[in-house]
Amino acid sequence: MSTFWAFPGQGAQQAGMLHALPDDALVGECLREASDALNEDVLALDTADALRSTRSVQLCLVIAGVACARLLMTRGHTPDFVAGLSIGAYPAAVVAGALTLSDAVRLVALRGELMQNAYPQGYGMTALIGLEQSVVEGMIQQVHGARSPVFLANINADNQFVIAGSDEAMAHVAALAKAQGAAAAKRLAVSVPSHCELLTASAHSLAEAFAQVCVQTPTLKYLSGSTARPVYTAEKLRDDLAFNMCRVIDWRSTVQTAYERGARLHIELPPGTVLTGLARKVFEQGSAVAFQGARLDTLSALSREEESRHP
Rank of each mutant, 00 (worst) to 15 (best):
R111W: 03
E113V: 09
E113P: 07
L114S: 09
Q116M: 07
Y119G: 02
P120L: 13
Q121M: 11
G122W: 04
A127N: 04
L128A: 08
I129H: 05
G130T: 10
G130L: 06
G130D: 03
L131V: 06
E132H: 14
Q133A: 10
S134P: 08
S134C: 13
V135G: 04
V136D: 12
G138N: 11
G138A: 12
G138H: 12
Q141Y: 08
Q142K: 15
V143H: 10
H144F: 11
G145V: 12
P149N: 11
V150R: 11
V150E: 06
F151C: 10
A153M: 09
N154L: 08
I155C: 03
I155T: 07
N156G: 03
N156E: 12
D158V: 13
Q160F: 04
Q160D: 04
Q160E: 09
V162W: 00
V162F: 04
V162C: 08
V162Y: 02
A164M: 12
G165K: 09
G165R: 10
E168V: 09
E168A: 13
A169S: 10
M170T: 07
H172N: 14
A174C: 11
A175D: 11
A175F: 01
A175Y: 01
L176V: 01
L176N: 00
K178F: 07
Q180S: 14
Q180Y: 15
Q180M: 12
A182S: 13
A183N: 06
A184V: 08
A185M: 09
A185P: 03
R187M: 09
R187N: 05
L188Y: 04
V190S: 10
S191N: 14
V192P: 00
S194W: 00
E197W: 01
L198H: 11
L199F: 07
L199T: 06
L199S: 07
L199E: 02
T200E: 14
T200D: 14
A201M: 09
A201E: 14
A201Y: 09
A203K: 02
H204M: 04
S205N: 12
L206V: 10
L206H: 00
A207V: 03
A207I: 04
A207K: 14
E208I: 14
A209N: 06
V213S: 05
V215H: 00
V215M: 11
Q216G: 05
T217H: 05
T217L: 05
T219K: 12
Y222Q: 12
Y222P: 12
Y222R: 06
S224D: 01
G225S: 07
S226N: 13
A228I: 09
R229H: 10
R229W: 00
P230Y: 01
V231N: 01
Y232I: 06
Y232R: 12
T233F: 06
R238D: 01
R238F: 02
D239W: 05
D239G: 10
L241Y: 05
A242N: 04
A242M: 08
A242T: 02
F243A: 00
M245G: 03
M245F: 11
C246V: 03
C246N: 04
C246M: 06
R247K: 14
V248K: 04
V248F: 03
D250P: 01
T254E: 02
Q256H: 08
Q256D: 13
T257P: 00
